[in-house]
Design a protein around this nucleic acid. Sequence first.
RNA 1: CGGGGUGUAGCUCAGUUUGGCUAGAGUGCAUGACUGGGGGUCAUGAGGUCGCAGGUUCAAGUCCUGUCACCCCGACCA
Length: 580
Amino acid sequence: MRYSQTLIPTVKEVPADAEIISHQLMLRAGLMRKLASGTYIYLPAGQRMLDKVTRIVREEMNRTGAQEITMPVVQPLELWQKTGRDVDYGETLGQFTDRHGRGNVLSPTAEEGFTFLAANEIKSYKQLPMNLYQINTKYRDEFRPRFGVLRSREFIMKDAYSFHVDEESLHETYMDMYNAYCRVFERCGVEYVIVLAESGEMGGSGSHQFTVPCANGEDVIVYTDDDKEAWNIEKAPVDPLAKQDAVEAGPIEEVHTPRAGKVEDVCAFLKLEPGQLIKTLIHTCGDETVAVLVRGDHEANPEKLTRLLDGAHHDMADEATVVKLTGAAVGFAGPVGLCDKVDRIYVDHAVAAMAVGTAGANKTDYHITNVVPGRDFPLEGDKVQVVDIRNAVDGDTYEGKTLLFKRGIEVGQVFKLGDKYSKKLGANCLGEDGKPRDLLMGCYGIGINRIIASAVENGHDDNGMILPISIAPWEVIVTPAGKEYEIVEAAEKIYQQLLDAGVEVIIDDRNARGGVKFKDADLLGIPIRVTIGKKSLAEGQVEFKLRSEPDRSTLPIDTAAKQVAEMVRDMKAKLERPKE
RNA sequence: CGGGGUGUAGCUCAGUUUGGCUAGAGUGCAUGACUGGGGGUCAUGAGGUCGCAGGUUCAAGUCCUGUCACCCCGACCA
């Protein structure tokens, strides 16, 4: 590749609308340009990176025996109605009506499509297990695209779907995928941690997330202080808190708290700490209403609620429902007498452990104090359950071990789906006994663009990106520093030798000053730079520099290409070799 | 969707408070000269419906109304 003939529009200044480093550098290095909020044009260097990540993913998928297919991006809405995900996915599901009045969906993921295929093509257990995948564009109408490529509306995902006749087979493929994912991320040269995740509304029984630790990540990872276990915050379990010492509590007392519906307002008004409050959160789940009680300083965890509801879709109740149910404006719901009003109540352990608290009075502008859990509202019964339903916070433990927190970027996730989709779409097969059974499914996703963004987040310095050789747009850049004939000739020769050796090399043949070329090479993060300059050339040497190291060395001009090609091979091999 | 912010040259931004002559700088781009190992110097030049629409005014980038786009925070309110 010749730099002068390639579109690599690097820029000196930081683009005004890019906040985080990966976004800034991907724009500055000329990898991509924004078309609209959350959609990006990938330019030649960015495209090369996508291609390289894609190739690694494809190789590792194929190695497990998974087969690549292509699913349409535009899919009939009807198919999504059959699984109910047209509703559950909500507004994030991009839709349009075509000229015939048919509803269409822009595929944000493809369980429906793959299950449709399986329903039609899989007849017998003899065809199983089968694992199909695709690598293509996904569209999600995100409520708020941000952080450049990290949360975009359009992105490239590898999604695989496996089909099985029994749990054992599902587990086997699940672990194959799990291991393939480890290899993918190792080969891409990104550090990752694997955390237990909630399968949530995807349904199913098990899930792991592959997360790149990074301060700008949107996901919160919780791990034990011995580093033995890790979860997504959605999943992280917490030990129940010790029951507080009983206090002499008088009878419930109603207090006037005008317009103080929020925790902070109530606290300010009554001079309390948030931890002394009991929050009552009303949800709807189908026709049922579900109340969740958590301490004022805690957050309810919707994923934990989903699990308690067996994967059923739920929402926060709207204002009208809350008013109708509690007889009070939003902000004044409380647990006392709530049993008669809602279908279920989940009480967080931390609330049950409170000796006494303050809660909404189910009466607009009033709260009640001296509320004793167990005395003033039940902690057991048909409708009531004391459970773990909040997010872990600083100071929490699990099995006695202190929980720690860090942020991460989710780059992959594997799920056991069970029969949620196959049941709804009639994907079954005949078993050995001649009887039909629903297929069991797994699904497995990798965000291609996010791998690149995470690599940049964790690999950069003041001069630009520092990329792993496996995903850098080029492995080597040859930089003639000067336009004298001998320099150009020597550079061209080495360039040709590297090409012949199968190295992905770009020669910076622009008529520019050395400084300009060095800056751009650094910005692009190309792992190896070979510079041909007047001084070293006179001594029969060329200069060698690793992007990741500050110092330079020289190589004899006659053997330079060969040595560099070997080095490239070594660097790649190091990433390919599975870690201990 | 709620809150905040920004839209002026390809990019980064002044100018808007207090309306007033031909709308500016740096950078990038083009041409030429010098230069040539860390975004070099000088000269010349091209490049703008001041986001869009309407209004006020003798006069609008500047004031008013509306609208669109983009960015940030939040969306679990109790």
